[in-house]
Design a protein around this nucleic acid. Structure first.
Lengths: 210, 210
DNA sequence: CAGTGGTCTAGACCACCGC
DNA sequence: CGGTGGTCTAGACCACTGG
């Protein structure tokens, strides 16, 4: 919680209305959240911004079963050109690459390739992936102090390679939807690059215009 | 243009700040648009909310060539159950169904099926489709007084029928992305239902999270 | 009940637009 | 230059929360 309107206004020597306008801007950007009668709180950032919103896997019963998460592989390597640029790393720097499978009730749904810049995520490089949480963003915050504040997803249509298909228990060449995400912290630094693949036949997305 | 803040405030007997807050809500909902030094104007509604934003057809030169539009067919029929419900029509009512092809530089890109409720769009039922504009929403407004204020798009993956494929010069069964849109006026009434199909390999969509 | 955010007032002054 | 929206002030009062 941050100090009250009245305190901040007098402390900074501005009128209450002006301070409220400033806070409204922070709310708009998702930096803080206001609760009538309680106070103004610093936002915890994105919890998951679930990739599941692009798909419909739930077996038509309405209970929102949280998907399980399995880290299949972890590698350390130098960044690609694009990664070095996005993360502001030297070509000689290091990144951690993860392969991750998300499942609902034991049924594999999404296959993810996650790339994290390394000095920053050092705390995760040393830990056992079996102990990791199902939701990564809250874990980034807890163990690395990194808050994911917004993200950008780019969707394309593609096909699964034989290796990808076997992970998802589908046939090689099966149509898939590919989501390429870049996630950013409050300062606007890219802190994660992620590629997610899921069955194109489960894809469904709703967009509101204006 | 609507009357100025000062006029409205005194006329309605509220403070200027209060009136500004009210107008801010209208701006948020896209009802009006404010221009510093000029005035406050009633929004003209969506111009096109182009389906093109879901695809990348432009042949990599950055000029945004406006797509041409061809009405291939017009039919009149009774509404389906879903249509009757969405449009608040009786089962014995009438709708106008259009098949429409959108092309860029002569190359067919999108195939659309558009359904309009009929007492409402009577002015278009009698007119020659060859004279229609490339952009429908401004034409709805000009000729029927109907302002499309917001819309909801639902995206799915599918395949083209032989008939659809021939319209788009693709092979039967070719993968496509299917966009089902419902468009609404300011009062929240559904005024158009539209199904758009385009080559899945041209599909690309960017979503920002928070 | 004290403390918080939410709404409202009645002004002052500034920045922008078009004539 | 007059008219417009944009910012700011210094209060008053209301509505909600939690101990």
């Amino acid at each position: 919680m941050i100090p009250s309107e009245a305190y901040l206004a007098s402390n900074y020597g501005v009128a209450l209305g002006t301070l409220r306008q400033a806070l409204a801007l922070l709310v708009e950007d998702g930096i803080v959240r206001r609760e009538h009668g309680r106070g103004t709180f610093v936002s915890r950032g994105l919890d998951s911004a679930s990739m599941m919103r692009f798909f419909r896997f739930q077996s038509d019963n309405s209970n929102a079963a949280a998907p399980q998460s399995n880290i299949l592989q972890r590698r350390f390597r130098h960044p690609s050109l694009a990664e070095a640029k996005a993360f502001s790393l030297e070509a000689s720097g290091q990144v951690m690459q993860l392969e991750r499978l998300r499942s609902i009730e034991g049924h594999p749904c999404l296959l993810e390739s996650i790339v994290l810049p390394l000095p920053m995520f050092g705390a995760l490089a040393d830990s056992n992936t079996a102990d990791w949480d199902d939701l990564l963003y809250p874990m980034y915050q807890r163990r690395c102090g990194l808050v994911v504040q917004h993200a950008q997803d780019e969707l394309r249509f593609s096909h699964l390679s034989a290796r990808q298909a076997s992970r998802l228990r589908l046939e090689s060449g099966h149509p898939c939807v590919l989501v390429e995400r870049q996630a950013f912290d409050i300062a606007g630094r890219c802190v994660e690059r992620r590629t997610t693949r899921g069955d194109a036949y489960s894809f469904t997305y709703t967009a509101h215009v204006k």
